[in-house]
Computed example of a mutant assay.
Amino acid sequence: MDIELRHLRAFLALCEEANYTRAAARLHLSQPALTRTIQQLERIVECRLIERTSRRFELTEAGVDLVKHSRRIIADIDTVAAELRLRATIEVGFAWLLPDWFAVPRSHYEALGGRITLRRIDDPLAALEAGSIDIALYRNEARLPRHLASRMIATEQRVLAVSTNSPLATANNLAWADLAHYPLVVNTVSGTIHAGSWPAPDPEREIITCTNFDTWIELVAADRGIGGVPALARTRAPHPGVVYIDIPDAPPSHVYLAWRTKPTPLRAVKQFLENA
């Protein structure tokens, strides 16, 4: 049998604690298990590492030498492992209109040596749950399963989207409440508004549904109904058949990042979340 890292880590913990009970607790081992590990290490190197006759904890000459080498070996291994983890590629899924500010945490993470792959997908939360991406960026108010966690990381001003053929395209001084009865186009998978986005939803209101942004904007352009979208759509998603109108009292939309908590997320994922 060859020396393994578990042998060296156990030996170092014992040397630093100078006590089997404390070292075993630190390593989350039973004391007999730690004793067996140390004895196994001594059999592998074929020499005694710890004095057995002294009443206090004391290393043999070989034990003192092994401590020096063990510290160097484990420090080198930990450094290499940390560097490789930072180079890990994580995949971020988003449904539409990746925010401009996303470039900042992406640059910070990649400056540390990591890599990010972006994936446009209609339902990033479903992809995250299926394990095909590492992090989901989404805007809808979703109830997540217990093995997913999320964090709100930004707030975006919302604007009204209407067809160029709609009478609202040239309307002035519109308020959010004025829009409560118009036919509404709702992206049920990744959209930011629905009938409940108004304080008193109209039960007779016509709702036209779709499941992605591309279909949503085409339905608005076809004057099937009005829509609401973050203001960045004005520059990021211009459409010849759509007008974006500022509504001063429109409720803002929120941007979230979600990740899996089970199994335990990769350290690269945690590193990116810290940067984000």
Score class of each variant (00 low, 15 high):
132 S>C: 06
121 I>Q: 03
126 A>S: 15
112 L>N: 14
136 A>L: 03
96 W>T: 04
104 V>H: 08
93 G>K: 01
142 A>C: 06
135 I>P: 02
125 L>D: 00
110 E>T: 05
134 D>A: 08
126 A>D: 09
139 R>W: 10
98 L>Y: 07
114 G>D: 03
113 G>V: 03
120 R>N: 08
138 Y>H: 15
102 F>Q: 02
129 E>I: 12
112 L>S: 10
111 A>W: 01
145 P>I: 10
93 G>Y: 01
94 F>Y: 15
131 G>F: 10
94 F>K: 02
124 P>I: 11
115 R>T: 15
111 A>Q: 10
116 I>T: 08
123 D>T: 09
120 R>Q: 13
140 N>T: 14
101 W>N: 09
147 H>E: 11
132 S>K: 07
134 D>E: 10
105 P>L: 00
99 P>F: 00
135 I>G: 00
143 R>A: 13
137 L>H: 07
111 A>G: 09
136 A>H: 03
101 W>T: 10
127 A>G: 07
141 E>G: 08
146 R>L: 14
108 H>Q: 14
127 A>N: 10
135 I>T: 03
95 A>I: 06
133 I>M: 02
106 R>P: 00
128 L>A: 04
129 E>W: 08
105 P>M: 05
133 I>S: 02
147 H>K: 10
135 I>N: 02
130 A>T: 10
107 S>L: 14
142 A>R: 11
148 L>T: 12
117 T>F: 11
93 G>V: 04
131 G>P: 04
124 P>H: 09
93 G>W: 02
106 R>E: 06
99 P>E: 04
142 A>Y: 08
